[in-house]
Amino acid sequence: MSKDFDNTLEQLRRQRQESRCPMGDEELERKARQAWQADAPRAQGAVVFPVARRRSLYSWPAVAAGMALVLVPLGLRASSGNGLDTVTVDGQQVYFACNNACSSTGTIAMLDEYINLT
């Protein structure tokens, strides 16, 4: 067992430089596509925020890792997602869209969090 600093630092450097992203091309392409799809409504004034990060806070099995959700002000069309819901935030109706199928319970939970964050 060595506690030599320089040796350990070199090991850490090597480990870092050898570490590889576990995603294959297909998964990476899917994630990249989600990024530009999620960004399309943002360009029109929608609020975009990733959801999967908060799945530990909400039991929402329909949420897959890496998905992005968008809040689109009423009047704009959500260009991404096959899950689309309409809800009211502070008296203003907004579309709530996500790029994966989701439950309305999850939608409400996410909106609660969105309201708390803003």
Binding site: M23, A35, D39, P50, A52, R53
Partner: peptide, 30 residues
């Protein structure tokens, strides 16, 4: 690999956190 490494640096507690962070970095890069 570089993006993954940066995400891993900041998200040490769970593998899914790294994936979430990766997705968020992709969004910012875009």
């Amino acid at each position: 690999d570089l993006i993954w490494r940066v995400c891993s640096d900041f998200s040490l507690s769970a593998a899914w956190e790294v994936e979430d962070a990766f997705q968020e970095v992709l969004l910012t890069l875009w």
